[in-house]
């Protein structure tokens, strides 16, 4: 699925300068615990989270993730967007709930990309 499709499905706004909407991603990982992202996520995933801090971007960077989707009713602080631009990570913001966001993406073909040990 292209990042542009994700943006449209979620009615999301793009907050960074560096978003390649033609980029393909094959899975998504959703968590507010960066510990779990670091342990289990795939590098071709996008990260969906309701946690707003700089370490979300650092975590995505270490994992090689190209896009972070923030869930929430408020905008992230400018420092977070500045860091995302520096790290060349696309940041989107959707007002949809976490449940709706994941449901929409899953229904439209994005998989969980979860390692097999978590699926047992």
């Amino acid at each position: 699925m292209k990042l542009g499709d994700i943006k449209d499905l979620l009615h999301a706004s793009v907050l960074t300068n560096c978003c390649d909407l033609d980029m393909d991603v094959d899975s998504a990982f959703c968590s507010d615990m960066m510990s779990n992202v670091l342990a289990y996520a795939n590098d071709k995933s996008i990260l969906i989270t309701g946690l707003y801090n700089a370490q979300v971007l650092r975590t995505a960077d270490m994992m090689g993730m190209a896009c972070v989707v923030f869930i929430g009713r408020r905008d992230p602080d400018p420092e977070i967007i500045e860091l995302a631009n520096e790290l060349e990570i696309c940041v989107m913001l959707t007002r949809s709930s976490m449940f709706t966001t994941c449901g929409l993406l899953f229904y439209n073909g994005l998989n969980g990309g979860v390692p097999s040990e978590l699926q047992r």
Binding site: D32, M33, M34, S35, N36, L38, L51, N53, Q55, V56
Partner: peptide
């Protein structure tokens, strides 16, 4: 934990 860390995954990871 509220910052997203401290799940006990650090050293094993």
């Amino acid at each position: 934990i509220n910052l997203g860390f401290g799940a006990g995954m650090g050293l094993p990871n």
